[in-house]
Design a protein around this nucleic acid. Sequence first.
DNA 1: ATCCGATGTCGAATCGGTTCGATTGAAGAT
DNA 2: ATCTTCAATCGAACCGATTCGACATCGGAT
Lengths: 338, 338
Amino acid sequence: MDIGEIARRSGVSRSTVSYALSGKRRVSEGTRRRIQAVIDELGYRPNATARALKEGRTRTIGLVIPPAGRRLTDMQLGFVASVVDAAGRADLDVLLSPSGGEHDRSFERVVVGRRVDGVILMEIRMRDDRVASLGQAGLPFVGIGRTGSPERMSWVDIDYETLIARCVHHLADLGHRRIAFVDRSAELAATGYGPSHRARAGFARAVSERGVEGVHACCADDATSGVSCVGRLLEDHPGLTAIATINEAAVPGMYRGLALAGLTVPRDFSIAGVAGRYLAENLHPPLTAADVPAVELGTSAVELLIGRIADPATPHRNLLVSPPISLRGTTGPARPRD
Amino acid sequence: MDIGEIARRSGVSRSTVSYALSGKRRVSEGTRRRIQAVIDELGYRPNATARALKEGRTRTIGLVIPPAGRRLTDMQLGFVASVVDAAGRADLDVLLSPSGGEHDRSFERVVVGRRVDGVILMEIRMRDDRVASLGQAGLPFVGIGRTGSPERMSWVDIDYETLIARCVHHLADLGHRRIAFVDRSAELAATGYGPSHRARAGFARAVSERGVEGVHACCADDATSGVSCVGRLLEDHPGLTAIATINEAAVPGMYRGLALAGLTVPRDFSIAGVAGRYLAENLHPPLTAADVPAVELGTSAVELLIGRIADPATPHRNLLVSPPISLRGTTGPARPRD
DNA sequence: ATCCGATGTCGAATCGGTTCGATTGAAGAT
DNA sequence: ATCTTCAATCGAACCGATTCGACATCGGAT
């Protein structure tokens, strides 16, 4: 059933049906009603593909998520949910494209096949080929995260550098003198993952400002790795009394690792981090953390993208959030170990 | 840049370029090379929308997920990931459509606008309007989950009825005489959510077979609700010593609730359930549970869907899994309370 | 010299919409 | 009665691919 069928049954031309539907030209009341009746009876809806072809836009945005196989963190899940939600409110559909490995069929298909009007890119590297591809394809995009030269793109991001520094200051204020920074996985950091780089810089800065000792450790995004990471840290650094982290997925494991070592949080050991609010609140004990407003970031990313699609020539905009640290149950005064 | 541009620069007609690309007719070696050179130079890729219009298929499948705002459970996340992954391997893209509320623009757009070649439907109700819509639209679909009349559709599902019964038997074998079934949220169950219904039936059956006392409780999908749900159960049913559950998201909260009541798992209280393997293993203590093979289910769903798209007249197929219970750390011999 | 089949390429139609310019017919002005 | 104006509608072109039938060319058979 196509628009021709509707036209025939209503005794008008195809263009009249189109105008009746879009309202872009006047159609007499009687005709409109007749057409509408036929449409309702047959349950007609214009074919989105044909419309997309003619209009030159698909009313779809691409959401590039971390590659399949890797589990989304709580925060990432929050991004995805809020992007889908915000897009839906703007009557845009969302096409999922797992990417982040090397060559990438899905990303290729979506981007250069023009399946989408614009793209939201997650888990961006300091140097990111996908950003280059998108630029070259002339496809509007917004990053959740930013590259090393962020002035050349639109993005929303979390100010990990500042936030981790703030965690260190908070811990130092409590008297901690040996603090570990638990990063995300070594592979991710090695590929130039922005938050890792920037958080490391913020950590180094704060550590030197406060004259405390800093330790860096990578840790995969799961509880088991958190356990072993903490085990290693405690063993290698006897004076360690606190952790600052951006690895929310490993936090439950860290809790367990500390418990295994006979340490109680926050009495014997403190943890502060950057995490999605939902997760921070639902951990036990609830995590003292800078609460990343995933919904706000996802929503803003969609808004920025819609703006760029409407007018690609507009100057780049961005949003850098540094939410305050919510004091919950995981930090307390330093207490010497051993 | 379109196929005409490539044709012009290669000095051939558009159809020749198309045949060179698709291989559906012979093109002389020299011509093919010339065309390929131009394509490589310009980085041309056929416009997916135009191709979709002509071919009558979009090479995209729709994935209908629970409505925005509700957080995906670990198991659901596993489904989504594996569906996206399996689809990608078949060179299909995935369009996300949050749905499950009442009227639903996204679902409408995707289904009747023919944006996709087929649909995978999550979180199906015993009676589900979306199944009717899809049938009426003549769009192939596969359920992860099934309705009350499952013979009329293709699906993959978890045999919650059997699995919960198995949990009850396991607990009864350990001497438990008062067992609670912790369901998912009351709202979800009220809308006829299949797993709730079927698990409840399996629970009732097993409880009567073993002559033990069964208690039913609904619980929202989060840790906090798990805490309060357990609190209520312990208070209202003093003899309660075990829980069987399909609510994986509430399990961490149940642990906490039991701990708050001074009960140690599994010494004082047992829990068995149905949960994604990843979650079950990463809980602390690891949950004794029937491990739902989310990846297998998602992959099978995509395979079934591809089959139906290829030949919609084929008889319906389905897959009902009932994985064995993995004994981990949360069940033990009953020990009277009070 | 003519006919034949194979091979390689082209032109036009098509998919289902949107949109622009042209056309029709009726009402109002002169 | 003729001209103008305007509202309502129509027909055709177009978006960018695929595909079918037609056609040109050429070597080989008669």
